[in-house]
Amino acid sequence: MAIHRRKFLGATAGAVAATMAGCMGNDGENGDGNGGGDGDGDGAGAEIVGETLTLTTTTSTYDTGLLDEVNAAFEDRYGVAVDAVAQGTGAALETARSGDSDVVMVHARSLEDEFLEEGYGVNRRDLMFNDFVVVGPEDDPAGIDGMESATEAFQTIADTGSTFVSRGDNSGTHTKELAIWEAAGTEPGGNWYREIGAGMGDTLNQASESGAYTLADRGTFISMQDDVDLGIRVQGPIEGGPELLANPYGVIAVNPAVHSNAKYDLAMSYIGFLTSPEGQDIIENFTVDDKQLFFPEALSEDPNFQQYVPEGWSSDGSE
């Protein structure tokens, strides 16, 4: 019996050793949690080396693989690690509101504007755009294939009672979907309308499984189209569809005056990198199945003041 107990203690000690080894291993490789600006300075000398920038963003930038591309390039250039939390626009902004992230990359202008107006965000930049597409099953029960108008398509889906899967998660895509229903003058509801409270990938999977329509960002749809039995029924503006389906992404730093722990300088470096010719190049050249998913729009010789302020804001109006 005594032997057994010793063995058991041995196992416990082993587990503790493993725990500590895991702990040390982590400190060694990501170097976060030290809080200070000392970094580990692998001879690079710069103070920010080894610090961590927390980005909250949407599932579309992560699920398409774009985020890994740009973040890897940023990490190479600045020696700073990026912790990207993919949440959906509403949640990403909410996390930033409580001061738990340093920078946000999102795609719902109305929600971004609220964020700016409440003082949580500063230095917004237009980053890139793609577009939304209405996707549905091949047999197209509502008969919307090739329609030129998103509102007409939504109206028809509602009239025929064809199953529609909604993100239902306060994301950028969900916000856009609700805006289209409103523009169509239809209150969605009833058995045919399913709010599933999930990310874009889950929503496409579920729409595919149940032969339903949904609104998807083109990027995520292209990256997943081999796995789902869905096709584009109404094109977005990139392929000549209605402007209503445009999907612009913005990037905003968290206001360091509201949250003093926000790593504002790193956030601005990140924004600077993404909106630089180099960062925009990476976005331009990012392809899935040889298709470009995102179109950079940060570089422009002509001034574009509206990207810095809530839409329609002017200094006259506010004074």
């Binding site: 490789e29 990501n30 973040n71 990026v82």
Partner: peptide
């Protein structure tokens, strides 16, 4: 936890 993975594929 936020389900974070670094760009190089290392889970945080």
């Amino acid at each position: 936890g936020g389900n974070i993975v670094r760009a190089d594929g290392t889970s945080i």
